[in-house]
């Protein structure tokens, strides 16, 4: 009665987005779903992986499919905050300064290779992410709604990167890793069309009104006391266990819950189950939780460890 509701709810624009995106990014349906859940939970998304696995493709595909206007900012080491926010230019005809909005003024901002830019430029973007507004020349300008940042970054050990500080990483609801495609998907990719062409032909699968509606539905999914007990038990465990360098923040707990709600909705359920929390836990917690020096040795996966060491109450 609860389990097969997904089939009953279809066709549904969210599923439509997922299935169409899966045709462009092959063999990555789970990552696409998680990205979609992130957007439905109104969180910003960070995609981290080596170059060439489709980070940019995924973000571009999502932007197009969601029917939102989007702009892309390629972050480089010489990028200035004004390149992100915009700049006031003297207009001779009216003899006034006119503000030329930067690429941040759009519903979806693709911040490509965010860790190649200097901290100054990074912080311009990250502040806008947090406050949903931009202040330039003493004037505060609101950003459009909905507003998302999908940022991509290279793994930190690559040359020429400025790692994001932990406080700024915390502003991303999820951090996804795409990983290499499996053999079948890779073969298809090699045989198939150019991805850029595919994206340029993508038609929006939903409009912004539908998106806002879906976001509202996500926040309306049922969260029982028993589920809150579970979320609290998870968070509490990170704070008392000696295996983690630092416990999860209340913001992280909230992020976990919101993402789980969106995930539950995408599963076609009205209520959030521990499985939903577990599904989003690795991507929500992964960039926030680290093992201590000792436990980090030997490929310690903090989020996987957390998942198996807390019983469902």
């Amino acid at each position: 009665m609860l389990i097969d509701a997904r089939a009953r709810l279809a066709p549904n624009p969210v599923e439509d987005v997922v299935s169409r995106a899966s045709r462009v990014i092959l063999g990555k349906e789970r990552q696409i779903r998680l990205a979609m859940a992130c957007i439905l939970a109104r969180g910003h998304l960070l995609i981290e992986d080596v170059p060439g696995v489709g980070k940019t493709t995924l973000s571009q595909a999502l932007a197009r499919l969601l029917g939102l206007d989007y702009q892309r900012i390629q972050f480089t080491s010489d990028l200035l905050p004004a390149d992100v926010i915009g700049v006031s230019i003297f207009d001779r005809e009216s003899s006034t300064f006119r503000f030329h909005p930067g690429p941040i003024f759009s519903q979806i901002v693709l911040a490509d290779e965010i860790n190649r830019a200097s901290p100054k430029a990074q912080s311009a973007l990250l502040e806008a992410m947090e406050e949903h507004q931009v202040t330039a020349d003493g004037q505060t300008r609101p950003l459009p709604e909905p507003f998302f940042v999908i940022a991509t970054q290279n793994p930190l050990h690559q040359v020429g990167t400025f790692p994001l500080p932990e406080s700024q990483l915390d502003r991303f609801l999820m951090r996804l890793r795409l990983g290499y495609p499996d053999a079948k998907a890779e073969r298809e990719l090699l045989k198939g069309e150019d991805r850029r062409d595919l994206i340029s032909h993508l038609e929006p699968a939903m409009n912004s009104a539908q998106l806002i509606e879906a976001q509202r539905a996500a926040t309306a999914t049922q969260v029982s006391d028993a589920l809150l007990d579970y979320v609290q038990a998870l968070v509490a465990h990170t704070r008392v266990s000696p295996k983690y360098a630092q416990g999860l923040s209340p913001r992280a707990g909230l992020a976990l819950l919101r993402a789980a709600q969106a995930w539950a909705m995408m599963q076609g359920r009205r209520q959030v189950l521990p499985e939903d929390v577990q599904a989003v836990l690795p991507v929500v917690v992964g960039h926030r939780l680290h093992g201590t020096g000792e436990s980090q040795k030997g490929g310690f996966d903090a989020s996987a460890d957390l998942l198996t060491s807390v019983a469902i109450p």
């Binding site: 009665m1 609860l2 389990i3 049922q222 029982s224 028993a226 209520q271 959030v272 189950l273």
Partner: peptide
Amino acid sequence: AREITGLYVEARYGA
């Protein structure tokens, strides 16, 4: 098992 799980899930995590 499906029936039992369904009832349990509704009781514990649903309304």
